[in-house]
Amino acid sequence: MRDADNAELHGVAVKTIRRWRRLYQRRGASRGQTHLAPPCPRCDEGPLDGPAYAELLGWYLGDGYISLGRRSVFNLHIYNDVRYTDLNARLLVLMRTVKPSSRPHTRRVPGAIVTTVSWKHWPCLFPQHGPGRKHEREIVLDEWQRALVTAFPADFLRGLFHSDGARVKNWATRVVRGEKRRYEYPRWQFTNRSEDIRRLCGWALDLVEVAWRQSGPWTLSVSRREAVLRLDGLIGPKS
């Protein structure tokens, strides 16, 4: 059937029919094959859930990496503490959302759960992938990634803080009426050895107007009471 006739039959544009046909040919699929990998948002103009991607990007920059498997298929791995059952379940949802119809799986290693999903196009979505450790190479977001983080900064921060962050109790002493008293207060800390990733975290905190400071060589802290409360509301508990 001619593309024009096929387009008229299905009520879509001719260029849509041509794109669908190219996708089948590119994947080597037969006409009767229906279980295809989802189209890549970057290569094939496939859909991309912005909030889920921004959050998964934060997880990848924190405790994730990509490895090359068989048949030129890449594997996205996210490590997370075994104690955080809700977050480990959340990772499965994020991966299925970013790669529709996928089947991520988990494995247990000492003290952690590794959540993994395979796709040929993970380097398209995470161009920060490269040889060596992330803190030993430059980490810069592409313009389309910066646009998504700007649109969904809270989701990006949720991935960062839930991977490489912690909500801790700090304390200080103060003399009141001649008596030394101890006061405890919560704060969020984000620790990463990559200066580029810490800079991205600070940039996203600025986007949501959460005050922060560099409290250590590898650590950013959110300590002011109103800032901690705001960040609590944006990213939720780490559980």
Rank of each mutant, 00 (worst) to 15 (best):
V73L: 05
R96K: 08
W203K: 05
V98W: 02
Q25Y: 02
C40Q: 00
A52P: 02
I17V: 15
G111C: 05
R22Q: 14
G62C: 07
P110R: 05
W212F: 11
T150G: 12
G130L: 03
F152G: 09
K169L: 15
R133F: 08
I197N: 10
D196E: 11
R27F: 04
R71M: 11
L234D: 03
G233C: 07
D196K: 01
K238T: 07
I78Q: 05
P51T: 06
E55C: 07
F126L: 12
I17D: 04
C124V: 00
D81V: 12
E226K: 13
S101W: 04
G130S: 07
Q25T: 12
G32Q: 09
I78V: 04
G132R: 00
V117Y: 01
Q128I: 11
V208H: 09
D206N: 14
F161H: 07
V176F: 10
D155P: 14
L157A: 07
D86W: 01
T106A: 11
T150M: 09
R2L: 15
R174K: 14
T191H: 10
H129V: 14
E136V: 08
I113C: 10
P38Q: 02
L23Q: 05
R193Y: 09
E184Q: 09
G202C: 06
I66H: 00
A204T: 01
R107Q: 09
G165K: 03
E184I: 01
G178E: 12
R108V: 14
L141M: 08
L91I: 01
Y24G: 14
L160V: 12
S30Q: 10
I139G: 12
N88I: 02
L91M: 01
L68P: 13
Y185Q: 13
P41L: 05
P186W: 09
R103F: 04
I197T: 14
V82W: 03
L207N: 08
D81S: 13
V176S: 11
A112Q: 04
Q33R: 00
G58S: 03
W203C: 02
R96G: 09
L9D: 07
V82Q: 10
L141W: 00
H77D: 01
N6A: 11
G50Q: 11
A211S: 15
H121Y: 10
L157Y: 03
D63M: 05
Y84N: 13
R2T: 15
L229D: 11
L234P: 10
W218P: 03
Y65G: 06
A154H: 05
V93T: 13
R181K: 11
